[in-house]
């Protein structure tokens, strides 16, 4: 299958990426090129194969759900482009 310009624009919206109009067309070609190359996987018969998500075979460990760290909002927000009173600040989302 191959992507059209509208689909690529909608993937960009899902990915929260602003793609300028003049980049959209070349990106359609680049993505189709890569997806076309990936398409060769359809040759592989995987009907009876279980997907592999963990290479070590370990099950994920559990721990107590307790606070082990924290209490220093100034350090945590020190890298924020904008912070106020120990909180991250963002553009207004509710009118």
């Amino acid at each position: 299958m191959s992507l059209d310009k509208a689909t690529v624009a909608s993937i960009a919206t899902l990915a929260r990426l602003r793609v300028p109009d003049d980049r959209l067309e070349p990106m359609v070609d680049e993505l189709n090129n890569i997806l076309g190359w990936i398409e060769q996987l359809s040759e592989v018969d995987t009907d009876t194969v279980a997907p592999l998500a963990s290479v070590t075979g370990h099950s994920l460990p559990l721990r107590e759900d307790v606070v082990t760290d924290g209490g220093y909002p100034d350090r945590v927000t020190a890298n924020a482009p904008e912070s106020v009173h120990g909180f991250y600040a963002v553009p207004k989302v509710v009118e």
Partner: peptide
């Protein structure tokens, strides 16, 4: 929001997309 670059936009969603773009 939390670190690095921010490129402002008219809304939060636009700020995300501008920053990432």
């Amino acid at each position: 929001v939390r670190y690095g670059l921010r490129v402002d936009g008219d809304s939060l969603a636009e700020m995300y997309a501008n920053t990432r773009g």
